[in-house]
């Protein structure tokens, strides 16, 4: 009896402005979770949504997933043709591993200007050639390297990777975010000489260092 009542709360489906969020219990057995997910997406699911395409974010809480398990969840959600799986968020450490696994040292290159009001999103590491203007936003799950002026908002390790760094030729951001840490430069942040810098997290504190010291930080990973 107890198991049954618990069961119905393993998968919580919430509607947000950006689509559906599946919040998965992270204490129960994985198989129970899968069976409930399958059941929730069964015949009765049509009551919740119509035929329009809905994006889905899955939050696994403090649970790690193997690649196979990720695939399994993706397949179950994929059976509903109108559901578009946007992301599966797992426990932070596992997220790092996954990003490292998936991308290794791969860096995607993007050229252009991110102007006020524009948002550039990328899964993985990004080398951005151009300026990010005040009011513009760049969000990546990995590292962000900007060859140009970073004057807007940059968020690296957006899926929770605290090892991510933000580097820029001209570091004049409105705000920097790494994983869940938000920092803004001091108001009187006027530097005499301009050199390339990067931002990183040290014990949950955001710090800025010369780019020439980046290898020390990244090598230790």
């Amino acid at each position: 009896m107890k198991k049954l009542s618990q069961n119905s709360h393993l998968v919580t489906i919430k509607g947000t402005r950006d689509g559906l969020v599946f919040i998965m219990d992270d204490q129960c057995e994985y198989v129970d979770l899968i069976s409930e997910l399958t059941e929730k997406l069964g015949a009765s699911f049509e009551k919740f949504v119509d035929d329009s395409i809905v994006s889905v974010s899955v939050k696994m809480g403090n649970r790690t997933l193997t690649e196979q398990q990720r695939y399994e969840i993706a397949v179950i959600i994929g059976r509903r043709s109108n559901l578009l799986l946007k992301s599966i968020e797992v426990a932070p450490t596992a997220g790092d591993e996954r990003i490292e696994q998936l991308l290794g040292d791969n860096v995607m290159i993007h050229r252009g200007t991110v102007r006020s009001g524009q948002v550039l999103q990328h899964e993985g590491n990004l080398l951005f050639l151009g300026d990010i203007n005040p009011g513009g936003t760049v969000i990546v799950t990995g590292d962000l390297y900007v060859m140009g002026a970073l004057r807007g908002l940059a968020h690296a390790g957006s899926a929770g990777n605290e090892q991510a760094v933000i580097a820029a030729s001209h570091m004049f951001p409105t705000q920097l975010r790494i994983a869940g840490v938000i920092s803004r430069p001091p108001d009187e942040w006027v530097k005499a000489d301009v050199y390339m810098e990067f931002a990183y997290l040290d014990d949950g504190q955001m710090k800025i260092d010369k780019l020439s010291n980046l290898f020390k930080r990244k090598q230790s990973l």
């Binding site: 102007r115 006020s116 009001g117 524009q118 203007n133 005040p134 009011g135 513009g136």
Partner: peptide, 13 residues
């Protein structure tokens, strides 16, 4: 600054 910010937005548009 505010006018330049808005101009930037418009150029993007």
């Amino acid at each position: 600054k505010s006018a330049v910010r808005d101009a930037d937005r418009v150029i993007g548009k």
